[in-house]
Design a protein around this nucleic acid. Structure first.
Length: 679
DNA sequence: TTGCCTCGAGATCA
DNA sequence: CTCGAGGCAA
């Protein structure tokens, strides 16, 4: 490197550090120390210098936030530690119950506490993200996804000004995974929509969707134009540094690294403080520059968090205290009865569309006959609707005073609205069903949709509209008819040209190669979902055996009781069903012969296993299935009860943890050898 | 349940 | 340009 280049490199470093420091003051401390014009001048200076010395441009330079090329989306990333979701409470008493549970649980572990310290923060209404920094440099941004794996949105996350490309520290952690919420502040949302309206395009309906939509953009240049911000609130993984001991310290730690935290957070001495905090925030809600839908409380001491652990996908040490759902008044236009795949008749209210909680609601389910009677909803009624839980619209109550005279209570029909078969409600059941079976057009349609669905035979491109057409034209009565369709028949359908028809035939053909469990699930036997189908496939290996199995044999399969066994038996006792199944076989539907699994002496039986990193030979899903088929339990985090950890490529901190706890660690090859030896 | 983005392909118009 | 389908998030 020449002397002048060394000089330039130093100059670049000084400029970048200055800009990063100003970013910190501006975005994180919310306290700019220089005027904007001065900042812009520094940026310009950096840009000019970099333009003259392109070889010295690094990807974490403040000028490199926005990539210039659209990125092929959809690539999957695995979080080092799973991203949990939060339980909800809506009232004081529910919150007190939560606090009581926390104290009871801790007491049972020898920690008698009168008051639990919590950290309270507003619950932002945005999109959860997971960011990975290695040696202080942002290398990955991902959506929450199912909590274990999410989508790579690095290119878009980088464009958010409040996301530092590089952490503000001398000794950065080797690896850091941080959780935050990306949101669009109210003001930015309004301004953005204003601009969009001026150029005649469609505005976003609410800030949350605006944020979510922006993050899913392929072209980061578009995302960069959206006024997105972020607050960080938690650590998924911290390697190479000592982990903060409390949630409060965690927030301070993040803040010091240059990761912006919500300024409203506070430490609560006990649950009573939480209630006060809730009331304060509720009062302040409209003045906050962003939308929130409640507050979150987290047990402050990490040590206690660890003692409490998690149930299924929610930690027992944190809870969301939600604000009351917004309610709106509207009118019932109509009450329809939908017929589901199993014939279940569901009353659905068609509403005069209303804007509630950020979306336009025009349908609301009334669940079943009893619910319908209990709420006594009638056509023409004025009703209060809200979005319950998170998403599903609910009719809260009828304003009876506004009811017009002469309206009649709505009754469940006694004949199926689709096929006029009888509607029967079994003793002790909540749902009434059309007994028409596949005679019923609705059930036929639903059966075929189910058959084609992603987790069944996964016939891509065969969507609702297409199935509707196929069924109403009588081209398809049962799943096996799908495979008899001709190019000509398909291309005559609406919106189907020759090309689309060819594609559909192609996917139909491909979908014939499947697995036994998918096939069983696809049949839509009552009470046979994915996991039951898998259990059946693993234990009864062949279709012949399954069809011949009596109730007693079926009940020997784990997790299958008398009711499910009877359903399966009944399904195969119907000639019609057997004919469909045979027809499917004749069409060429096939699967690899499952290996008969004997759990008794397998080395994996009853073991608790954790996967980390990317397995090269198989997807995570397949690995999980294989393991559980061998009688193992696959879990996501390592504890003392973990028996072994299987390590793929780019493993996370789980390996360290496993070694520390003395848990057996296996490579992918060793894992493969073990599976083979199991049968 | 709704809203958003993306993709492929059919429909429409010049 | 518009629609259907798929996928995702809350």
């Amino acid at each position: 490197m020449s002397g002048s280049q060394v000089g330039v490199a130093r100059e670049l470093r000084v400029l970048r550090e200055a800009i990063e420091e100003h970013n910190f003051s501006y975005y994180v401390l919310d306290n700019p120390v220089i005027p904007d014009a001065e900042y812009d001048r520094l940026m310009l200076q950096l840009q000019v210098l970099e333009a003259n010395h392109p070889e010295l441009v690094t990807s974490d330079s403040p000028t490199q936030r926005v990539g210039v090329t659209p990125v092929g989306g959809g690539s999957v990333v695995t979080h080092y530690a799973p991203m949990l979701s939060l339980g909800n409470v809506f009232s004081k008493s529910e919150l007190l119950d939560f606090d009581q549970r926390v104290r009871d649980q801790l007491a049972s572990r020898g920690f008698e506490l009168d008051n639990i310290e919590y950290v309270a923060e507003p619950k932002l209404d945005g999109v959860a993200v997971n960011l990975r920094y290695e040696n202080g440099v942002l290398i990955l941004g991902a959506t929450r996804g199912d909590g274990t794996t999410g989508e790579d949105i690095t290119h878009n996350v980088r464009t958010i000004p409040t996301v530092p490309l590089r952490l503000r520290t001398e000794n950065a952690p080797v690896a850091l995974e941080v959780r935050g919420e990306v949101f669009m502040p109210r003001e930015g949302f309004l301004a953005y929509n204003q601009r969009v309206l001026e150029i005649g395009e469609k505005p976003f309906v609410n800030p949350r969707n605006a944020a979510a939509g922006s993050l899913r953009q392929l072209d980061p240049r578009l995302t960069a134009r959206r006024p997105l911000e972020v607050f960080f609130y938690g650590i998924g993984l911290l390697n190479g540094q000592i982990r903060p001991k409390t949630q409060g310290e965690t927030l301070k730690y993040l803040h010091n690294l240059g990761l912006r935290t919500c300024p409203e957070w506070e430490v609560m001495a006990g649950v009573q403080d939480c209630l006060t905090y809730y009331a304060q925030i509720l009062k302040k809600r409209n003045e906050l520059p962003y939308e929130i839908d409640g507050v979150v409380y987290k047990v402050n001491a990490l040590e206690n968090q660890e003692l409490l652990g998690a149930v299924s996908r929610a930690p027992r040490w944190a809870i969301a205290h939600k604000f009351p759902a917004q309610e709106e008044l509207t009118v019932i236009k109509e009450i329809k009865f939908q017929v589901g795949r199993t014939g279940a008749i569901t009353p659905v209210a068609r509403l005069q569309p209303v804007f509630v909680g950020g979306v336009t609601v025009s349908n609301a389910t009334l669940h079943n006959e009893d619910e319908l009677a209990r709420k006594d909803v009638r056509v023409g009624d004025s009703v209060i609707v809200r979005r319950a839980g998170d998403v599903i619209p609910e009719i809260v109550k009828v304003i009876k005073e506004r009811r017009s005279a002469g309206s009649d209570p709505v009754r469940l029909p006694t004949k199926c609205p689709v096929c006029s078969s009888e509607v029967v409600r079994q003793e002790g059941e909540a749902v009434a069903r059309c007994i028409g079976g596949l005679v019923c057009g609705a059930q036929r349609r639903e059966a075929i949709r189910h058959f084609a669905s992603r987790r069944a035979l996964d016939i891509k491109g065969l969507g609702t509209k297409l199935v509707d057409q196929l069924v109403t034209r009588g081209l398809v009565e049962n799943p096996s008819d799908l495979f008899g369709l001709t190019l000509e028949q398909i291309s005559e359908l609406e919106r189907m040209g020759l090309k689309s028809a060819e594609n559909l035939l192609e996917t139909l053909n491909k979908s014939k190669s499947t697995t036994f469990n998918r096939f069983l699930y696809a049949l839509g036997i009552r009470e046979v979902g994915e996991s039951t189908a898998l259990a059946l496939a693993n234990h009864l290996c062949s279709l012949e055996k399954l069809m011949a199995a009596d109730v007693k044999r079926l009940e020997e399969v784990p997790d299958i009781g008398p009711i499910v066994a009877a359903n399966i038996r009944a399904f195969f006792q119907e000639d019609r069903n057997c004919m469909i199944v045979n027809q499917l076989m004749r069409c060429g539907v096939s699967w690899p012969q499952p290996v008969r699994l004997e759990f008794e002496d397998g080395p994996l039986k009853g073991k608790t296993i954790v996967l980390t990193g990317t397995l090269l030979g198989m997807t995570r899903d397949v690995a999980k299935q294989t393991l559980s088929a061998l009688g193992a339990n696959v879990t996501s985090s390592i504890s003392k009860s973990t028996d072994m950890v299987i390590v793929g490529d780019h493993p996370g901190a789980k390996v360290d943890r496993a070694l520390k706890l003395g848990v057996m660690v296996l490579s992918e090859d060793e894992f493969n050898a073990l599976i083979k030896s199991d049968h």
